[in-house]
Computed example of a mutant assay.
Amino acid sequence: MDRLLTLIVDDHPIVVEGLKTLLKNEQNLKIVASFHNGTDLLAYIETNRVDLVLLDVTLPDINGMDLCQIIKKTSLSTIILILSNHTERSIIMQTIQNGASGYLLKNSSLDELRKCISESVQGNICYSREVMEIISRPGRNELRSTPQLTRREKQILSLLAQGKTSQVIADELFLSPLTVDTHRRNLLQKFEVKNVAELITTAHQQKIL
């Protein structure tokens, strides 16, 4: 099998040198270049064959999530593995959605990196053990069960989402402003949020609005 022509992209020179040292004896890889930003990486990919990119998420010019998409548009067959300190589930999922074949934290072992490279060559998505644990935990909004709302609460929620004040809602529904405020407080409690802006965002996420 041909050796994978590999690029390392990280804005910390010490990380780049560390990876080069770590991978120099790998029989299936050939590190052909390293870059500290996305612009230089993209310029290189335009004119050179690249089989594998080891990519950080945080770069000075273009973030790794966006770079995944751009690299895949330029060279669909290039495999991208993310090596990052970011542990946010949303960032991990977004990079995969944008074309990365795997996500590892920078404290991963060489064996985990080898395994991910091998898996990605076979067309699989691969994560380091710690990343697997992060993505197997549901997000905060997924954990919340959808609150049961009364017909009146649904009405008031809908009017709040339209930006109407308690006084306007009270006039429209022929209620006292005090009653509207009570419903509003109950809604905040049911959705476990602090203010109306969060209430509306969460209600949208839970497909209630």
Rank of each mutant, 00 (worst) to 15 (best):
R3N: 08
L7Y: 02
I8G: 08
D10K: 04
D11A: 07
D11T: 07
I14Y: 09
V15K: 09
E17N: 09
T21Q: 02
L23R: 08
L23Y: 10
N25P: 01
N25G: 06
N28V: 05
N28H: 06
I31A: 03
V32N: 01
S34M: 08
F35A: 12
F35E: 04
G38A: 12
G38W: 01
G38Y: 02
T39I: 10
T39L: 15
D40E: 06
D40K: 05
I45S: 13
N48A: 04
R49N: 12
R49K: 15
D51M: 02
V53A: 12
V57L: 05
T58V: 05
I62H: 09
I62E: 11
G64E: 01
G64D: 02
Q69M: 07
Q69W: 07
I70F: 02
T74D: 01
S75H: 02
S77Q: 14
S77K: 13
S77D: 14
L81T: 00
L81W: 03
L83T: 06
H86F: 10
T87G: 13
R89T: 14
R89E: 11
I91A: 07
I92E: 03
T95C: 15
T95P: 15
T95W: 14
Q97T: 12
N98H: 13
N98C: 06
N98E: 11
G99S: 12
S101P: 00
S101Y: 02
G102Q: 05
L104Q: 05
L104F: 11
L105S: 10
L105T: 13
K106T: 04
S109A: 11
L110T: 12
R114D: 10
S118C: 11
E119N: 14
S120E: 01
S120A: 12
V121T: 08
Q122E: 14
Q122R: 15
G123V: 06
N124W: 00
C126M: 03
R129F: 10
V131R: 04
M132F: 04
I134N: 11
I135G: 13
S136M: 13
R137V: 09
R137E: 11
R140D: 06
N141R: 14
E142Y: 03
R144Y: 15
R144C: 10
Q148Y: 07
R151A: 15
R151C: 10
R152Q: 05
K154T: 00
K154M: 04
Q155G: 00
Q155E: 03
I156S: 00
I156P: 00
I156F: 00
S158P: 00
L159E: 03
Q162T: 00
K164Y: 06
K164S: 05
T165N: 07
Q167C: 10
Q167E: 15
V168T: 13
I169N: 00
A170N: 02
D171H: 11
E172Q: 13
E172R: 07
L173I: 02
L175H: 04
P177R: 05
L178C: 04
L178W: 02
V180F: 00
D181L: 01
D181F: 00
R184T: 06
N186L: 11
L187D: 09
L188F: 09
L188G: 04
L188I: 14
Q189P: 08
K190I: 01
F191C: 05
V193P: 05
N195L: 06
V196W: 03
A197G: 12
A197V: 09
I200D: 11
T201A: 13
T202R: 11
H204C: 07
Q205A: 12
Q206N: 08
I208K: 06
